[in-house]
Design a protein around this nucleic acid. Sequence first.
DNA 1: ATGATTGCTACTGATAACGTAGCAATCAAA
DNA 2: TTTGATTGCTACGTTATCAGTAGCAATCAT
Lengths: 114, 114
Amino acid sequence: MPGSPVRGSKTGKPIMALFDLLGRNWSMGVLWILCTVGPLTFRGLQEQCEGISPTVLNMRLKEMRQADFITHTSDGYVVTAMGLELFAFLEPLGYWSLEWAEHLEKLNKELKEA
Amino acid sequence: MPGSPVRGSKTGKPIMALFDLLGRNWSMGVLWILCTVGPLTFRGLQEQCEGISPTVLNMRLKEMRQADFITHTSDGYVVTAMGLELFAFLEPLGYWSLEWAEHLEKLNKELKEA
DNA sequence: ATGATTGCTACTGATAACGTAGCAATCAAA
DNA sequence: TTTGATTGCTACGTTATCAGTAGCAATCAT
């Protein structure tokens, strides 16, 4: 959490705390799926995440609830207003990643020819 | 790399490959520092990253060079055009993370009072 | 009661990261 | 031409995190 030292940051700068949180395995994936697919149960999330282990999923859910990115309702797990704001930054990366993939393909092609 | 299965994604979707890469410890931090501080040597980066272990730093650098986000010149490690494009998405998170930190503080205050 | 679903926890490997030490290469003075 | 400083790493032992399977208590609808 921001303000207190975290894994990967002793300074407690919010941006580093955020990177630390998002930098854990499946953090961004879970947020992405909840935002693009909709509310999901624990087991529903597990399936969408290609069989993520329940241990890790539960840890990520706890962390992201503490960060107020998601919350647990009768519909299952849903993103909060804060989570949606964060997703707004991440969402354009979906399109960009396609260009990045193409760019890498070109690069590797050129390397083979040379 | 996009197109091939990666840790955390069997489908090879570029966005998941990107999340997998950025989701590793210090990936976003290294990119952030190179973009905000400027070209740095291996040891310079180590200091900026609060003493990241050389093993991990070297792994991240290799991965991010393969992803064409950074490259190694006589000035040290520098971001590529692709790396700058990616940073453009990440950079606004710096400001937003401050609001997020404030929001969390408020939330925790309310919890204490209640 | 029975079965299905949900939200987990426990346990055992495997993988990734940390942290210290140190080495070969380059350069620049002494 | 040694000496020292810097740079870009590698090796290695320890610790933390993740993966993968099993299973359990609670809820709900048959």
